[in-house]
Design a protein around this nucleic acid. Structure first.
Lengths: 138, 138
DNA sequence: GAAAAACTGATAAGCTTTATTAATTGGCAT
DNA sequence: ATGCCAATTAATAAAGCTTATCAGTTTTTC
């Protein structure tokens, strides 16, 4: 949120961003760490955490805090919603129109100063639907 | 989600539910633990976690997984949305109409089997708005 | 009333995230 | 180019939240 005074463009930062931009899954910090480590084997996990957090604060990437215990990150920063598989925990984008009007409804209904909203759908992904059918046969 | 074979109504379970029903905040497991411990000083934290999880699975209470790292619980189980203060992390209910239509939109837009959705607003609560103004004077 | 099942409390273990610190690096002004 | 200094890094420890384990207890069932 704040101004970022002298944010250096380090190798680590560049590669973290590049790797995150490669995928459309919404990796956790640890998953990003695994991806980046293939190119920078000596990078520390703390560096990945720190930079993901910094980049999210500066708006370069998106931090997604949905169901489940872990934070996830996304290089796609335009407003969009997510769906999370209740079976395997996978998170995908879901392409429905952004519901601008509900922020106004929220402003009217609450004493908070509204900053925004996020919608998270829950469902069962195709892979897990298949698994369910198979195990139902037993 | 599953059938719950012989779920006993233990003292611990009753008191956890009673204490949760007393508040409209959305306490974390640890906060529930603190509340319950005033009446059952020897209860274990694991028991609180286990029972909150069980009751959420059986639909008696609601498990809320919003921004922030901790799970929160709510004795109010009718569908409603939440707002989270980005400054202090407090979670409140927000009373706007449930957006039934977006589940259909999601079904059309995705290969997932849609189970439901949740909307989380982010904002600044009144207490934190005051604090902001005070510190802005400095 | 005995056997089976569910549950508890205590504790340990697991996993994610944050903090600490000495060493290194990138950017800027000489 | 060179040197300086703040920002950054890697490594590690520490912290925080949640889940697993298990012996002992309570409840149910027959």
């Amino acid at each position: 949120m704040d101004h970022l005074p002298n944010m250096r463009l380090t190798t680590q930062r560049q590669i973290i961003l590049e790797e995150l931009a490669k995928v459309t899954s919404h990796p956790t910090a640890n998953e990003v760490y695994d991806m980046v480590r293939r190119r920078l084997p000596r990078i520390g996990l703390g560096t990945v955490y720190r930079n993901l957090e910094l980049m999210a604060d500066s708006g370069v990437i998106l931090k997604i805090e949905v169901g489940g215990t872990q934070k996830r990150f996304d290089a796609t920063i335009y407003p969009h919603y997510h769906i999370r598989c209740s079976a395997c925990g996978k998170v995908d984008d879901i392409d429905i129109p952004v519901q601008l009007h509900i922020n106004e409804a929220a402003t009217a209904a609450s004493s908070y100063e509204i900053l925004g909203h996020h919608i998270e759908f829950s469902g069962v992904c195709q892979a897990c639907q298949k698994k369910d059918k198979e195990s139902a046969v037993n």
